[in-house]
Nucleic acid binder design. Structure first.
Lengths: 157, 157
DNA sequence: TATTGTTATACTCTATAACTATA
DNA sequence: TATAGTTATAGAGTATAACAATA
């Protein structure tokens, strides 16, 4: 029963609760642009350049048909479009539209700010420490670059 | 363009990618039990005892009707059930069934293990450090106890 | 024959609006 | 009147299976 005494939190619990927190901040940041977090994540993955459907489905861990729908809905909003792959007649590449590139950039900035705010209670050195520990975990687990920094969005085709 | 040189990752990027990672591990752990992560999260929130619909909707950030559906589906799987609130004739409390308590316990253990594995590359002291930094962030942002430790699941009626 | 992608279908998750029943 | 919850409806996300077109 109510052992509500806030005993020290184990790492798994801390990670799961952090997920809950970041999830909410991410959804908040992105909702301002009228898109869902799934659509935002899709856009993040094509910021650096067009990518094929199979590739994207693999990275996102989705069934092919799920990605078809996601791309359809994002395309209906004018943010991405399909480009035939010149090197394979069967394949389609997903690329940002000009509007999509613009939205992606602003949305990215907004997300960084929202998520950054979560760590308001940490000192600068603690933030760096936290970032470096998480980076290790991310690298160890080969997380795809579902969210980046530095890249500039580029409209294509 | 391709600045693929893995420059040091900022905290926001690290947090967003960690979310992606934990999300997948959580969904994996939970899928073995034939339930969705939303249903698992609901169950986590009533492990410590029955709670009202409004309360749960607030904590989860869902509309009331969304929670109605979520509880319906979880109840259809036999994992939770509704109990009238003795202190308010309008209110319903959501409680784990006996089977739900059993599943919650095993699922929790499995999730801890899956998520814990993500940090396989960190030493014991690094894990503690990471846990304590994340705990600070969680406490600062008043994350509800969407996932816990220590509590024992208790079926109720 | 294997791969890329779409379509058809079904289920889950979510929200808004309208409603019922208690307080 | 305000609150707790449900129902109706609609859209987004996802998966499986069957299919088309190209490799």
């Amino acid at each position: 029963m109510g052992e509500d005494v806030d005993e020290p939190m184990g790492l798994p619990t801390a990670l799961v609760r952090t997920r809950f927190l970041v999830d909410a901040a991410y959804a908040d940041a992105v909702r301002d642009y009228g898109i869902t977090s799934q659509q935002a994540q899709l856009m993040c993955l094509v910021i650096a350049g067009p990518r094929g459907m199979c590739d994207l489905a693999g990275v996102l861990g989705l069934a092919k048909s799920s990605l078809t729908g996601l791309v359809d809905r994002t395309a209906k909003r004018g943010l991405v479009h399909r480009v035939p792959d010149p090197s394979d007649g069967r394949a389609q590449l997903v690329a940002l539209t000009e509007e999509g590139a613009d939205v992606a950039e602003r949305m990215h900035a907004s997300t960084v700010q929202h998520v950054d705010n979560l760590a308001y209670g940490l000192s600068e050195s603690e933030r760096e420490l936290l970032a470096s520990l998480l980076s290790r975990v991310i690298t160890d687990n080969e997380v795809p670059k579902v969210f980046g920094e530095g890249d500039r969005a580029q409209a294509s085709a």
